[in-house]
Design a protein around this nucleic acid. Sequence first.
DNA 1: GTCTATATCGAGATAGAC
DNA 2: GTCTATCTCGATATAGAC
Lengths: 209, 209
Amino acid sequence: MARSQTTRKPTRIQREKTNSILEAALDVFSDNGFRGSTIDMIAVRAGLSKPNILYYFDSKEAIHKALLAGLLETWLAPLEEMDEDGDPIEEICKYVALKLKMSQNFPRESKLFANEVLQGAPHILPEIKGGLKDLVSTKASAIARWAEEGKIANIDPYHLFFSIWATTQHYADFDIQVRSVLDDGKDPFETAGPFLDNMFRAMLEPKAS
Amino acid sequence: MARSQTTRKPTRIQREKTNSILEAALDVFSDNGFRGSTIDMIAVRAGLSKPNILYYFDSKEAIHKALLAGLLETWLAPLEEMDEDGDPIEEICKYVALKLKMSQNFPRESKLFANEVLQGAPHILPEIKGGLKDLVSTKASAIARWAEEGKIANIDPYHLFFSIWATTQHYADFDIQVRSVLDDGKDPFETAGPFLDNMFRAMLEPKAS
DNA sequence: GTCTATATCGAGATAGAC
DNA sequence: GTCTATCTCGATATAGAC
């Protein structure tokens, strides 16, 4: 078990190889899911041999866990930026735009996450029931307050989050379907931005009571 | 290869066993994905032996294909019901409600479909680029016409469909996350119905120009 | 039609030379 | 640190008795 991860000083080369393995693994796992991926696929894409992969990581699962480890944090960062003292509708729409940008720029991460949750989140259920739930709860309170103050329409904050996650991640996770339905060549993200912005503004606009 | 599927008259018992295998397979595949599922899991859940499964189906993939075969059709049925001569907003909201009901009543089918599309739709890409694309194209034209006539707001019909699919299926596909974020015990579907209805009505309401 | 036993194969992981 | 060769195991699928 005297693996490189446990030694004291990881050299530059070690870091580089570790990174290229993770990079290749992200490709493979997001395309094929955990069970559908093989170490060989990762090795080929990383330009390394199979045993060499297992020199840097103890197992296939260790690679997967390493990828997931930082993922939820990255995924939640945009939500943390939501400012309770800012303009309500602008803050929410900014979050939507950020989340859509993440789907556009990090589709592999989105798919990795989708795969994981779809299978019942076997590796990150604690994090979901912990950090995610807590953060959402906090931000939901802020949104509920905005609604009480009449600054936005009276909507359920939790379902608001679900609809934001669902609509933005859909373009990454189901991209094959989206692009198949649209004329090939069109970039879905260009038109999705204005559409979603308009959709959430319409819903959030305070109604005359 | 003289398998029962190819004989002329499938007896009642054969039909029943075939159905219980498909039923068990739907459980297993939707929970674990195709690669993560084993014939043994299906056999145990169906109360049959592994070779007996392979007497009724030529291979694990054959079971999977059989499940997917009817799925897209079932999945599209609600969209076909959308009436171009009905009240625009009511027709669209009826579609949303139906789609949500399907997520509630057929979560396994939804997950099976999500798994398939997430992996790039290897088995049903032709159907997606064929029947699905055509049907959506037809209905999108109707919606575009409604918009031109000022009966609904001027929104992109394709992104409307994407947002409907994303939001409704989210409750089935990501149920573990939804239920983890909400207080346990609450049924997400009860509150999701009114929320989504309100959301799509707000977006579709014709704007004074 | 249904079983037990087994052939076969793919893939994770390890041994040991270099 | 990296390779070739190999062990091992789980899973698909088949053979053949009943």
